[in-house]
Design a protein around this nucleic acid. Structure first.
Length: 597
RNA sequence: GGCCCUGUAGCUCAGCUGGAUAGAGCGAGAGUCUUCUAAACUCUAGGUCCUGCGUUCGAGUCGCAGCAGGGUCACCA
């Protein structure tokens, strides 16, 4: 149990005994004392002064005295207006530090693998074009969220639902047949997903020309878009695909194969992966039987033309189509089906979807309809709605070429990492292999941290003209801090003298030491809160605060040069604990930390 | 137009369930490497927290109205 829990309980007891106020200790909130005041934790007493019928200062004094008398760890307190600042004895921090240094997994709860799993869906790409920065944000968030929930003790399963069929794929296929001259990734040396994406753009180009030509002949725009030969042919191709036409299916498999090979490479570079991959070509017919169930239950209705709808007007929304008049299903229908499939496949405790906020409405409707269909787990569906990635001049659009390509971006980051490392020139003793790996993890560290430190729910601005930083509040800053610490710990190991010395309980900490230890102390709470908020950003900001506090400590406190053995051991323990905490929090973000850099 | 989200320093962002004089990084200016890795550290400058009204002992945080920007309301996915 942590000191903060003891404190809230002691305060609750004081309130009862002094004023007869009964409050649940859990509702008492302490805040960390601001730097400019003496103390470690602060209680704001204003909420209790009315019932206590005394001045804020008096109430604070009385509670402070009562708690100090009952809690050995409280070494003192002071009162400023209605703020009661508790001072915690250094012996508490020293003992905490000794425990922490011995725990390699500090901050990480052991996942309960026997619990019903939390299923996280993320990535879910279309197979007609390569991944761009928007997908990168999705993938990094999905992976990191999974790690974060695991760190908080959940049994997590990561899934991907690949959107491998549909009109968009047919467009790429058709364009390749028309203009491709039999090009393959092998013949061109172009990565498979990029090659297919090239023909998606090619389709759009020719299609636009056709529409323009038709409009010049006097056709209105809507009709022209519908009747342009390429569009008609793509639609026919989709129909042939659904009928299982051999030729179309063979081409589809070939081109999707190229895309998968390309995606796998990008996933590998990003360091993300999945426990199970679903393909929409296998699941797109799911959900139809649910529609029948809904009709039987009377929560869905059929219109005169045969189409099936769900009436959500009572929930403040519109009517939602679930089956077209020709009996085919729409995206929502499939999603109902795949939700059920996934729930049954895993016996899931929670279903989390990492999907952009442009689909907020979709998920609102999905949850509502699942509920109406009688699934009790409908409220266990959670949409992690992340903000779009925007460029200085607006949203990214694949067809218009205004995208930041994922592979290009990673290439560029690795190049920058190499340049910066060479400039610093500290890696002479590394082999070429090690050096290459270092550039990679620094590049990805910068990229991942840049994306994950932001609140996931907010839109993100990316300016391609400004390269992603390696200094300041960045991934490499934290990686550097870790490498520097590891260097000290290695030397400490050589010279021996790691274990806690006699007399360490009597150590008086300096401000910098205490500050670092206090931040370490708050790691478990931070992980818990971050998991509850589905926000890796809280973990990223924690790691930064810790690294910053450590660097400040390191700057003006001797560690290995300290002659007093107990003090030296304590400081080495700070190093060990901070290194572990940085490694573990960076791991939650999917960022590797180097031993040297 | 209906519904949803966002608005904090020149730029990019923190600010937990309301609490003390609103914080970082970048950028600008000034310092610190004969000493454990200077990708670091220290200091300075920079704010009507979009506006107004309200709730409260107390509002960047909560409520209402307005302004600005974005998303979404497909027999697309």
């Amino acid at each position: 149990m942590y000191i903060t829990d003891h404190l809230t309980q002691a305060v609750a007891a004081a309130l009862t005994e002094l004023y007869g106020i009964s409050v649940d200790a859990a509702t008492i909130t302490l805040q960390e004392t601001r730097r400019e005041f003496a103390g470690d934790y602060t209680l704001v007493v204003f909420p209790y002064v009315k019932q206590a019928r005394k001045s804020p200062e008096t109430v604070a004094q009385e509670i402070g005295a009562h708690v100090a008398a009952h809690l050995a760890e409280v070494s003192g307190f002071n009162v400023v207006k209605g703020f009661l600042n508790f001072e915690i004895a250094d012996s508490y921090w020293v003992r905490f530090l000794a425990d922490t240094a011995a725990d390699e997994r500090f901050g990480l709860v052991v996942p309960a693998v026997d619990d019903a799993p939390v299923v996280v869906e993320y990535s879910s790409p279309n197979t007609n074009k390569p991944l761009h920065l928007g997908h990168v944000r999705n993938n990094l968030l999905g992976w990191s969220l999974s790690r974060l929930l695991e760190a908080a003790g959940a049994n997590v399963k990561k899934v991907n639902l690949v959107n491998d069929r549909g009109i968009h794929i047919c467009k790429s296929m058709l364009a390749w047949m028309r203009y491709g001259n039999g090009e393959t990734p092998e013949s061109t040396g172009i990565k498979g997903d990029h090659l297919v994406g090239k023909y998606y753009v090619e389709f759009d180009k020719h299609y636009k020309d056709e529409v323009k030509a038709l409009m010049e002949k006097g056709m209105d725009e809507e009709q022209a878009k519908r009747e342009a030969p390429l569009m008609v042919e793509a639609q026919q191709m989709l129909k042939r695909w659904e009928e299982g036409d051999k030729e179309v299916r063979a081409l589809w498999e070939k081109m999707n194969g190229w895309v998968y090979a390309g995606f796998d490479e990008t996933y590998h570079r990003l360091g993300v992966g999945f426990d199970k991959v679903y393909y929409e070509s296998n699941t797109y017919l799911l959900g139809k039987e649910l529609v029948q169930k809904g009709l039987d239950l009377g929560v869905l209705f059929r219109k005169e033309d045969g189409s099936v709808w769900c009436d959500l007007t009572a929930d403040g929304l519109d009517q939602k189509l679930l089956l077209r008049r020709d009996g085919t299903s729409v995206y929502m229908t499939q999603d109902l089906g795949t939700a059920l499939l996934r729930h049954n496949d895993f016996g899931a405790e929670r279903l989390i979807y990492v999907v952009g906020n442009e689909q907020d409405y979709h998920f609102k409707v999905l949850k509502l309809i699942l509920g109406k269909l009688g699934f009790s787990w409908a409220d266990k569906v959670y949409h992690l709605s992340y903000g779009m990635v925007e460029l200085p001049n607006g949203k990214m659009k694949s067809r218009e070429g205004t995208v930041v390509d994922a592979d290009d971006l990673i290439d560029e980051m690795e190049k920058t990492a190499e340049e910066m490392s060479r400039e610093h020139g500290k890696n002479d003793e590394l082999t070429d292999e090690e050096r290459k790996h270092l550039y990679h993890i620094l590049a990805l560290g910068a990229l991942k941290y840049f994306i994950l430190k932001l609140d996931p729910t907010k839109k993100m601005l990316f300016n391609p003209a400004e390269s992603i930083d390696f200094n300041g509040n960045t991934g490499p800053f934290i990686q550097y801090t870790h490498a520097r610490i590891r260097s000290i710990v290695r030397r400490a190991g050589e010279s021996g003298g790691l274990k806690n010395e006699e007399g360490s309980h009597a150590i008086e900490l300096n401000d910098k030491e205490r500050q670092v230890i206090k931040i370490l102390h708050s790691l478990p709470t931070t992980v818990r809160q971050a998991a509850a908020a589905y926000s890796p950003a809280l973990v990223a900001n924690y790691a930064y605060d810790l690294a910053k506090a450590f660097n400040s400590f390191y700057q003006d406190t001797p560690i290995l040069r300290e002659v007093e053995p107990a003090l030296k051991a304590l400081r080495v323990n700070i190093c060990i604990s901070v290194a572990n905490a940085l490694r573990n929090t960076m791991d939650i973000l999917g960022i590797e930390v180097p031993e040297r850099m």
